[in-house]
Design a protein around this nucleic acid. Structure first.
Length: 789
RNA sequence: GGGCCCGUAGUCGAGCGGCUAAGACGUUCCCCUUACAAGGGAAAGAUCCCAGGUUCGAAUCCUGGCGGGCCCACCA
């Protein structure tokens, strides 16, 4: 491919062959960076280390706009820090295991034996990951790919399992029978964080219970749970039922249960009497424990009723119908109305969730709520209100974390369970990574029976909640040096999961918070301002964008689309504008190269105009640095671009043309052109890594600019700033006048009257000379402004 | 019900106590000026959601509305 050669040649030789930006250079640079190992983390001990605990995206097939937005932001931080004097440890991982892949694989291959099934999941994931990795590189993400981690790999399993074994030994991980959220569709326990809520229309039936021969009407949406009713409850102050408390109620199915008083009962709802079934909802669980009620298992793992006599084996929806039919026939349904109700669903399969008593593995959270809050306060949150998301969540925690999932594609829990006495043991360290199908086995130390290897796998948040440790190299020697991470960037919506679990696990495993700063980002909405979704047809695919625009234009859009934490609509027009900026930078660079080709490094005193643009540049450097340190990319890139486009391109370049064309103070102009352009390219580098590196190599011929340094501000000459400001404003006024008189900009104007601020008076002559030569005017008369109005 | 965030030109959005309230898109007019028409030059367009208050001074702070969004809790 000849064009490829062309690009490669210009990369190598420092020449500038391309007239226009060509996407070809992106492929070239991806390759070049890899060859030169530009982003490899090397701790040479000479620079401070900056560790980024970047989110491992779920391997869903391809990166979506949300990934592009967030990873661009993270990458901007990484590149900025790298150029600004840090050895940056920026590892990219992949979150691979879990329901979504299982669902897809099952759909494609049907049900397979465990080992085969997991193998297919691996194949599937591997293919997806390859594509996503390619995308990440072509958006210029500067991770050190030699430190990549993948949660399905045995070495990762080993770390996760070791972390669980350690927590087990401390008593933080235990097995117990407890009500858990259960997805009958996926046949697995779920954590609270894996549930979502939807509103739907349900039916509320008034059913006839009886107490001492009198009817007692109870409203319920779940008649299919009548067989699991263990009590009826009323409010203690409810006049209607005073005197009946403690008596026996007969359910419509003929079962006898006690009538209880409990303050949680809402007197206003229905008839003020509520049936307690194990379990209709979480309130039932609370009541069961509070009143020491018996537990009746209402349904099995597949959501089919059990202990329900004639209704055994029916699924919930069907049972509901059948029960109502029967009760109607018996005249026990006294009312029926529609009711908007909120139902908990599994966030992955979107099917309703039930509560089930089940033997599961838990991680102890409740005793550590205060520790977690304390650690949260030691972390700096950007924006600062982000901490509320975490504190609110911790405050509402009521149960420990259910970490076991009855699935296959996940990290096996490293435990043995005695089938005889229920005793549990952790797998020995030398048996890690542990896979139940290859388990060595173990005798129960309590009763001597053969213990069974646990077959459940870990919740995927168990995998991802140790990333700061994994990135640091835990548990191998030296990991303490890179823990805690300096930065945890992540989405605001997973504070209650990823951030929370990571803080918890970090604290329990190391005694220290896992990261120093959290950077939260908002999301990309569709061009219509609504959440992107297939059904709305407003999904923007990064692939299409990358075909059409330079990666840098898309990255620049991210920085320009608003402040970090807020959601923003995606807008094609803005990306086009950024493509224009890319071209502007390209063309300005070409101009500089063209007019400085014969620059010989000779020194020459700077003119006022030169000092002006340099001083303004230094001011921008200061502003840029301040904003970047605060993760305020928008402000940084806006200041830079306003300077570059308006002052440098529209004015300075015009002001020096007569000098470089006519060899008047040419050396100083050349020197300043090269200095400012180089600085501008460096400042753009974190945002537009392809463009800036290509141009830098082409013009300055010194290899990559991505290793830094960033430009530093020099002396700001206040009088030159004043001079430049008046020069620029005068030039603009002259252009306006020409426009008014219908002249073109290169036509010479006979005379013009301009205002001269008092502080610029000493420069009257210089201004006049420069204006005459740069904006073509014969005579200037000044009116002196004595004070600022 | 509780908490948090947000209401700035047709659109997107900075600014968060003090200059004529950035910038971009879009609109209108002029110009192919030798880096760039993927450009340049100009113009129009904003009771900064409403009502009070604090202040010499408020888009910016406080209180109360109204409107939008997110999270949590409850929902028999």
């Amino acid at each position: 491919m000849p064009s490829e050669n062309n690009t490669a040649e210009s990369l190598a030789s420092g020449s500038f062959k391309l007239e226009r930006y060509n996407k070809n250079i992106e492929d070239q640079l991806v390759e070049q960076w890899e060859k030169e190992q530009v982003y490899k983390f090397v701790d040479d001990g000479k620079k401070p280390v900056y560790v980024i605990d970047s989110p491992p995206p779920f391997t869903s097939g391809k990166l979506h706009m949300g990934h592009i937005l967030s990873f661009t932001m993270f990458d901007i931080v990484a590149r900025f820090k790298r150029m600004n004097g840090y050895n940056v440890l920026y590892a990219q991982g992949w979150d691979t295991q879990g329901f979504p892949t299982e669902v897809k694989v099952e759909k494609k291959y049907g049900r397979l034996p465990r080992e085969q099934f997991v193998e297919k999941c691996h194949e599937w994931t591997e293919e997806y990951m390859e594509h996503m990795r390619w995308q990440a590189k072509h958006f210029g993400f500067s991770a050190d790919w030699s430190r990549e981690y993948v949660t399905l790999k045995p070495d990762y399993h080993k770390k996760v399992q070791l972390s669980l074994v350690e927590m087990y030994k401390k008593g933080d991980v235990y097995m117990a029978e407890h009500p858990v959220f259960w997805c009958p569709h996926c046949h697995s326990a779920l954590a609270k964080a894996e549930t979502e809520e939807i509103e739907r229309e349900g039916t509320l039936w008034d059913l006839r219970f009886e107490i001492e021969g009198q009817p007692l009407i109870i409203a319920t949406t779940r008649p299919e749970l009548l067989h699991a009713v263990v009590a009826v409850a009323v409010h203690p102050n409810d006049e209607r039922y005073k005197g009946l408390i403690g008596k026996t109620v007969t359910t419509p199915l003929g079962k006898e249960v006690p009538l209880l008083a409990d303050e949680d009962v809402d007197m206003e709802f229905g008839t003020g009497a509520v049936m307690i079934a194990t379990f209709g909802d979480k309130q039932d669980v609370v009541w069961m424990y509070r009143h020491k009620l018996p537990y009746i298992k209402a349904m099995d793992e597949h959501g089919r009723l059990i202990n329900a006599g004639e209704f055994d084996g029916l699924k919930v929806a069907e049972a509901k119908q059948k029960v109502i039919e029967k009760l109607k026939a018996e005249g026990k349904v006294l009312g029926e109305k529609k009711l908007k109700q909120v139902v908990k669903i599994h966030d992955r399969c979107k099917k309703p969730v039930e509560l089930l008593m089940s033997n599961q593995w838990f991680a102890k959270l409740l005793p550590y709520k205060e520790d977690i809050k304390k650690a949260a306060h030691e972390i700096r949150w950007h924006p600062d209100f982000g901490i509320h998301y975490l504190l609110d969540w911790v405050n509402t925690l009521e149960w420990d974390w259910v970490i076991s999932r009855q699935r296959y594609f996940g990290t096996p829990l490293p435990f043995y369970v005695c089938p005889k006495c229920g005793h549990t043991e952790a797998v020995a360290d030398d048996e890690l990574p542990f896979y139940p199908e290859k388990a060595k086995g173990m005798k129960c130390p309590k009763c001597g029976a053969d213990m069974k290897p646990e077959e459940a796998v870990a919740d995927c948040w168990v995998d991802s909640s140790i990333t700061p440790l994994v990135v640091a190299g835990w548990p191998d020697e030296g990991w303490e040096k890179y823990y805690p991470s300096d930065l945890r960037p992540q989405g605001i919506e997973i504070v209650r999961t990823w951030a929370f679990y990571t803080i918890y696990r970090g604290l329990r495993l190391t005694g220290e918070k896992p990261f120093k700063h959290v950077l939260l980002h908002g999301h990309v909405m569709g061009p219509d301002g609504k959440k992107m979704s297939k059904s709305l047809g407003n999904v923007v695919d990064p692939k299409d964008l990358l075909d059409k625009y330079s990666a840098d234009a898309i990255r620049l859009w991210v920085a320009f689309s608003g402040t970090l934490e807020r959601d923003r609509p995606f807008m094609y027009d803005q990306v086009k504008r950024m493509q224009n900026l890319v071209n502007k930078i390209w063309n300005a660079s070409r101009f500089v190269q063209l007019v400085t080709e014969d620059y010989n490094g000779e020194d020459e005193p700077l003119t006022l105009t030169d000092k002006w643009i340099l001083s303004r540049f230094y001011e921008v450097v200061n502003e840029y640095m301040k904003h970047m340190e605060e993760f305020n990319f928008y402000q940084a890139v806006t200041a830079l671009t306003n300077f570059f486009w308006e002052e440098f391109c529209d004015n300075y370049l015009e002001f020096v043309k007569y000098r470089v064309y006519n060899d008047i103070n040419k050396r100083s102009a050349q020197k300043v052109l090269r200095t400012v352009l180089e600085g501008v390219l460096r400042l753009y580098a974190p945002f537009a890594p392809f463009l800036s590196d290509y141009l830098y190599r082409a013009i300055y011929g010194k290899g990559t600019l991505h290793k830094g340094p960033l430009p530093t501000a020099g002396e700001i000459d206040a009088s030159a700033v004043t001079y430049g400001k008046v020069l620029k404003e005068s030039a603009e006024a002259i252009r306006r006048l020409k426009k008014k008189k219908g002249l073109s900009l290169k036509d010479e104007l006979d005379s013009v009257e301009l205002e001269l601020p008092k502080e610029a008076e000493p420069f009257r002559q210089a201004l006049e000379d420069e204006l005459k030569k740069t904006v073509f005017v014969k005579a200037i008369s000044w009116s002196l402004l004595t004070s600022k109005e």
